[in-house]
Design a protein around this nucleic acid. Sequence first.
DNA 1: GTAATTTATGGCAGACACTGACAAGTGACA
DNA 2: TGTCACTTGTCAGTGTCTGCCATAAATTAC
Lengths: 247, 247
Amino acid sequence: MGQPGLRERKKQKTRLALIDAALDLFLRQGYEATTVDQIAAAVEISPRTFFRYFATKEDVALSLPVDNQEIMVAELAARPADEPPFTAFAHAVRAVITMLKQGDPADTARFLKSRKVIDGTPALFAGSARRMMENERRLVAELARREGSSPDDLLPHFVVALFTTVARVGFEFCGPDDPDDITAVAARLEAALAMAERSLRPGWDRPHPPAVTHPTDGAVGLGHAAPPAGRAPGRRPPAGREGRATG
Amino acid sequence: MGQPGLRERKKQKTRLALIDAALDLFLRQGYEATTVDQIAAAVEISPRTFFRYFATKEDVALSLPVDNQEIMVAELAARPADEPPFTAFAHAVRAVITMLKQGDPADTARFLKSRKVIDGTPALFAGSARRMMENERRLVAELARREGSSPDDLLPHFVVALFTTVARVGFEFCGPDDPDDITAVAARLEAALAMAERSLRPGWDRPHPPAVTHPTDGAVGLGHAAPPAGRAPGRRPPAGREGRATG
DNA sequence: GTAATTTATGGCAGACACTGACAAGTGACA
DNA sequence: TGTCACTTGTCAGTGTCTGCCATAAATTAC
């Protein structure tokens, strides 16, 4: 029981081999110029099998950052509930960096390689942004849960969008020099967080005391003690469709 | 001279017909489920010709918002140079809304329709985000020009990213109710702008006086203030390739 | 150890987005 | 009216991605 079984191990090995081969090819000859057939050939599997590992060609390039997003969401959920939202977010991203620093160096190298490919490929950059924005729904929900507010309010959307932006500027914005180690990435992320901290008013990420609101409404004043006031169920966006690239 | 010539008028007519047909089909049967052949058939042109009007299927859905972005950039360039960056940005978006309000109602309807399609289609939402982010380069350059700073600094990137975020939340975030008129869109945009105004410290969008070295700023270099000299010429992202959807 | 069952893989055909090349039609203009 | 430039259609082809079915390998049952 200690082992995940031969079949599972084989699968993970193939998966990593595909990622490595794909990133190398993307880096060498470009993303668009690389065909799935080439990636499959490099790992000696059939093209058909490639699509059993990754739904799209894009996915193989984005799988690592997506994994990190998952980690971040998990870290966020584990933050203490009384922490201000943005602070919690900041700790959550930092946790991802820490994990990268402490984990297998091979994983870190892979991650940096994928960042390099993504930053140099508009299509992948867009895909990465889409993932982040799809994630925003979850983050908004999580934030609303923490704060006891409604996901329909503008504030949680704003807080999450702003955080996503900071993370993007920190993670994805590559300046004049390509970072070859996580330390540089971590530094840039810290710089972005510091800039946000410097730019924003204290308490901006918590609902304001009711300036001139309805007198009958039970004054949704301080912090997290606010009544849930769950209004309409909120239209579930019909887009059940997952992120398939083409029709 | 008053008329652009028959040929040109015909082209514009076809273009609008394609947009209308495409948006209707997208709205009725979904974006992914609609083929280019169907759109072309609805306007009675060959599929090949469709691609002479729009480079990708995505483009036909995004062309209107993209046009608005162009307008916004132009408006921004026309703002007085001494205006604080974020204020100038805010005026520029407002100008777009004003133009929509005052222009041809048919255009407005088309715009709202495309917004509805985009908001309900992850792939289009991503495409829209990509356009905005590609625009960020231009905005950063423009901002750096206005402020006389370097585009390599973190601050202009942060300001632009934050503004993009506000515009996105204002324009694209559809709450529980679908807006059927621009007034609602305008109101949401104003709410987002107000929220940003409320959240940010005065003067946040201008470089700080080099008075204090930040106590926590241990982070590697990155100095937004001190080293005025942009270092390396800055790698121009090789991505000469335009936004083609697939390889 | 062998048999039965589940699961991964490969090959094939096909839908769809998109492109280059060439031929034919249509507006512009002398 | 005739020439020129531009637009359009047709055709063939590439690449991504999917469904279907047969085969091989691993897991489990006997």
